[in-house]
Design a protein around this nucleic acid. Structure first.
Lengths: 202, 202, 202, 202
DNA sequence: ACGTGCGGGACTACCCGTTCCT
DNA sequence: AGGAACGGGTAGTCCCGCACGT
């Protein structure tokens, strides 16, 4: 029965939700505690490092969730450009459904935690790197060289993050969608440049 | 002597600096007040709308500053790809000098202000749009069609924002630099595809 | 043309209104200023003693207004008991119309001004005494001895003040109305006891 | 050992004392906190509803205290008029001892709390009603009919409240004392009319 | 005399993340 | 694990003064 959750999971879940909507400092422990139904003592039992430890854990958990979504989309799609477009439409839809509130859970925490919060910063770094790796692998399968695939994957993740932010500012899906289309075009060109080269060699 | 500043300007300047480093909620009014040397009465005289009004004004001011930098780089560069690379190296250098602390002043505020802070959100939206317009104009001059130039400019701004964030997470210039190079390559291809001059040469 | 008012009068009028609803400390100068349309400089020009002087003036003005109402009711009524009942019904009606908000303008200020605000306290004292004098005169005309009339008038004003407060607590006219009826009965008995002339005439 | 008090009780005690002297808005939380020796966190732990909840609790506590005094006086006195006079002399003495500062704890709060503070208003209403009930019972025992006793009790409580206020304005016991004497006379007449009338007629 | 812009800073109620003790 | 205690932190409002223009 997955309905019954322990306090730790409940806390994390609410933390992810609220941090991405209101930022780190904008979200009070009291809110997280009350919404998750956990008493204060429980919180400090599971997260002796306090709010910052919770944030780091929330970032990691959220990153894994998104990585899972990326993997699923890649697995389902036959082409890299298909995966790119599929992912953006999914993200845009989901973001719109949240009322254009739920930003990237990594960014929201990263940007307003004190820059000396090394645990959080490290968690964010790893999150981004894992996503880049996934996309790079996908692009490589489409025929790109490893180095090119890596560069494009990094740029793609950057574009996504940026588009997510612009979509929030505009309260509209359009930047995410538009970036998906533009990038998939560029990607197609890159693949075409790279792959048919082998063909001409023949 | 422009050294003497009034309270309003001093307040704004500090607000821009601190918001981009610590976020909106992470920055207390007390800090802004003390660093700018303004008493509270002054602050609420100039910004009767309180912290949120200050944030909106800070966003607008910061956006103008960045727009100026973009314009300068574009004016100085002979090609679009040159401008792109020039801008990223400048940004990366400057960001590193801040200890990888000073994030994008727009994003930092946007992401942790309450989503109903319409004044702030609107200011952020306009900031992004002005930057996109500048780059689109630049790309168009390089021979791209208006529509393509717009799409690429939007994607370019998104990539920059994202790269800025990743650079913060990694505490390193590399994402910004890398995105600049990757994008300038893609841009070059697009221009080559579009400008028949080179094609006719064949 | 009584429509055009100067700042001083406008300030006083608003002050009376707000002090009786929200008390002295509960009403900010800013509210009074903005509602009366007077600039700050004007206020301190006319009331160099600041808020406290305004309060004292407001108490005096309000007291005069109520004294006028008392006089009018007494003049209009043929008997003391009639005046008593007439006044209470009028007061109750008017109080209900204010949403049971507008307490006695004297009491509201008196009770939450610092006890050392002698100007205010003195103004309040004079207000009560003037009302007592009016009612005492009225009762005397009905045949009561001067001393008895004074005692009853004092008690009557006390009862009214108290009833006003209870009416506010209950958000209902009933205490004011009830006190009016009870007191008029007691008053009638006292008059009957005192004027044996009519009894002996029979 | 009842000397040791918890924070909640200490807070309440000071709140009663200060609210009745300075009113609700005139009394700052800081003062209550410092005088009661409670830290801020404790206060908001015990009174999550903030200052208004504290005020409501203070009103209720103070009302009970006064009700106890009324009961004691009534129990000790053999006649209703005796109780009336006894109570006023006691009240006047006690009020004088406070330097004519300590007004009725109910009224002080009621009059300058926002009229929408329903919890406070309700507490005040109940306070007055409990006092009226006590006096009505006392008057009934003296031979008055229930209805008459109720009306007189209500008027008596109103007179007391009003006299308390006038005493504050005059900085003198006289209004309280005078009202006590006047009312006890009226009360005696009413009792005489009601009870012995029947006896003497026989 | 009268009004205004701009401070000035103490004070407001309230919430914060954390620790202590049961 | 749990809840009382803690006190420094939050944004914002208070009433008032001062200097400058009518």
């Amino acid at each position: 029965m997955p309905i019954i959750k322990n306090h730790q999971d409940a806390l994390l879940e609410i933390a992810v939700k609220r941090f991405r909507e209101q930022g780190y400092h904008g979200t009070g422990l009291a809110q997280i505690l009350s919404e998750s139904g956990s008493p204060k003592g429980s919180f400090y039992h599971h997260f002796p490092g306090g709010k910052e430890q919770l944030a780091a854990a929330a970032v990691t958990k959220a990153a894994e969730g998104i990585a899972l979504m990326v993997s699923a989309v890649i697995a389902k799609s036959t082409t890299a450009t298909g995966a790119v477009k599929e992912f953006t439409t999914g993200l845009a839809h989901w973001f719109a459904k949240s009322g254009y509130r739920a930003g990237c859970p990594i960014t929201s925490v990263l940007l307003d935690v004190a820059p000396d919060g090394i645990a959080v910063t490290e968690a964010c770094k790893q999150a981004f790197e894992s996503w880049i790796a996934l996309w790079a692998q996908c692009f490589e399968k489409s025929g790109l060289q490893k180095q090119t695939a890596n560069a494009l994957a990094q740029m793609w993740v950057c574009s996504l993050e940026g588009a997510w932010i612009l979509s929030r500012a505009k309260q509209s899906k359009s930047p995410i969608i538009s970036v998906g289309e533009t990038f998939s075009l560029l990607l197609e060109h890159s693949i075409a440049d790279c792959v048919p080269a082998k063909r001409t060699r023949r």
